[in-house]
Computed example of a mutant assay.
Amino acid sequence: MIIVCNNEGTKGIPVTARMLSEGARGLDAIEAGIRVVEDDPDVRTVGTGGWPNLLGAVELDASVMCGSTLRTGAVGALKGFTHPVSIARQVMARLPHEFLVGEGAARFAREIGAETGDLLRPHSRESWQKWFDARVKAEHQKSWADAPLIDYCQEAVDPEIGKDTTVFLCMDSHHDISSATSTSGWGWKYPGRLGDSPVIGAGSYADTRYGACACTGAGEMTIRAGTARAVVLYMKMGMSVQQAVEEAVNDMRALKGGLISRVTIHAIDNRGNHHVVAVNGTPENYYWFWVPAMARPETRPATVIQISDDTPKPRSVDSFKA
């Protein structure tokens, strides 16, 4: 058994580890762990308390994947529901579809009785208001719901350097491999923007025959490179998990233009090995790791790799904290 999750999984990984130790199935265990993260208002990039979009609304994305069946479930641009990871799980369990977004995802969530709640907490609301007052033109403030947003989208902020989407990868006692993600996405994003988290093959992928991968950071990059699926395919080709991640980083070197920022790639293989690389990251990038021989989950530093980047970085959210 093994669990790898990113730094935002701090409060959730003990739950996942305990459940796996007690014989729970992988998807059950990582869903439970992510729900803890989604409930934590101090995590500003996932669930309740997440950063809002340009219009001041919190939109959530999530996905799950079962590596033994290759079934997936994903939701995107979901408003007003506190546990998108569980809604994604139910998409997988109850529909012939794999992916729901926007009002369709909300309709499904209401139909299954998913938990609702106010996602925009005071700290996020105040930070957004500070940005709005400082950066939005007076003539647009009067009719913000109908204002042109394309130029303001360039104000999209990095949701706290090194803190992102939460991603969980695991192999359970049955040797089944699973992955799951949950996020509020980039702060001040264009309404309806989807990152890689709900996009199977970009932000996460699991195949029990080979391994799993999940990414955090600039999802625009991993969507273009198909990073999560690529890592698993490289392992299928016979590469080690470390070689597979390094080859996926090489794929990113080919990206030109668009948003080029930072991405952390988390991967495990079907033999219990793992590798985590922070592309354009900092020494502060870390992840959580657990295997049954450990008394408790441990933090470990990610391997930092810098790739060529001539693209201006988005403004940091620190500029607008209340």
Rank of each mutant, 00 (worst) to 15 (best):
A156H: 09
L20F: 06
G33R: 09
S204M: 08
L100W: 03
G47T: 10
L78Y: 06
T48P: 00
V46P: 04
A17Y: 05
A74Y: 06
V304D: 07
M65P: 09
E298Q: 08
H123E: 10
V85H: 10
T82A: 15
L54H: 06
T303W: 07
D172P: 10
R229L: 15
V241I: 08
I87R: 03
G203Y: 05
L194C: 05
I2W: 01
V36A: 10
D176A: 14
E155P: 07
P312K: 02
Y286D: 11
P292L: 01
V304F: 10
Q243H: 02
E8G: 14
L120C: 04
Y286H: 08
Q306N: 10
S240Y: 06
T216D: 06
M294V: 02
M221A: 04
H266P: 02
K313L: 14
A57E: 12
L255E: 14
M239Q: 14
F320W: 15
R209Q: 15
M239K: 13
P122N: 11
L60H: 03
L70H: 04
C170S: 13
D164I: 08
L120E: 13
V4N: 04
V291G: 03
D251C: 09
P122D: 11
I34Q: 04
A134L: 14
S184C: 11
R35T: 11
L55W: 00
G219Q: 05
M1N: 05
A295L: 09
G26D: 07
V43Y: 00
R209H: 12
I150V: 10
C5P: 06
V36P: 07
A138R: 14
D172G: 08
F99D: 01
